[in-house]
Design a protein around this nucleic acid. Structure first.
Lengths: 112, 112
DNA sequence: CCCTTGATCAACCGATGTGTTGAATATAGG
DNA sequence: CCTATATTCAACACATCGGTTGATCAAGGG
């Protein structure tokens, strides 16, 4: 579960592309081959193949073998690491906002 | 709260850089100016200024004015949209995994 | 054993990203 | 008013990204 800084780099940038995000969405419903993943997009299979390599290098998907096919499987672990990273700072910020509100209300109380 | 596809592009790629992630971490503890944000990094203020512009364009931070300073504030809204996006597909995948386990166990049961 | 299919590799191209330096702008403050 | 400080703009260099085409590799099926 140890996701280092470079892993976060790769995972976040991997998700910063609409084609790759659509692939993630597709794979959440089940495994798919390169050809299946390529179908919705007006780009070459080679380009799709490289998007897949990016997702794999980011640890977001894994691949198995089925004859001449190489099905892709979504790996939820790194996705969870991303939400953990985000939530740490989002929640800290929201806590800070609440403390500010609290303080503001206290000051207003004393001004009366 | 409507975060479109291009907004997701900008936000995810913005987080795909270690400098910008460190800035987010810093800003979760409170507002900071360009100079304060630049301090930990061995790069020029101009480079920092542009990282900040990237974060702002992604909707991850906002900026106010305090004299000649332009303090940055972390905006949790888009962060939350990112976790929502991720969790949708992560949870779907985990549900699917559980159904698979269930099915596998049923088959094994019948083989006895 | 060929030939088709699935997938990848290699080389190339244009666009974008990230850094630099140097100049410019704006506000603070004596 | 003049100068220092905070920030940004402009132009440039270099690397990476995302796409292409053409060749190659690997597995299956007649």
């Amino acid at each position: 579960m140890a996701v280092d800084d470079e892993q976060l780099d790769r995972a976040f940038t991997a998700l910063g592309d609409p084609v790759r995000r659509a692939m993630i969405a597709r794979l959440s419903r089940g495994p798919a081959t390169v050809n299946e993943l390529a179908e919705p997009f007006p780009i070459t299979k080679q380009a799709v193949s490289r998007h897949i390599q990016v997702l794999e290098a980011a640890g977001l998907i894994s691949r198995t073998r089925d004859g001449q096919r190489r099905p892709c499987h979504l790996e939820p672990t790194v996705l969870e690491a991303l939400t953990s990273w985000i939530d740490e700072y989002r929640l800290e910020t929201e806590r800070r906002f609440r403390r500010m509100d609290e303080l503001l209300r206290t000051v207003q109380e004393q001004e009366k």
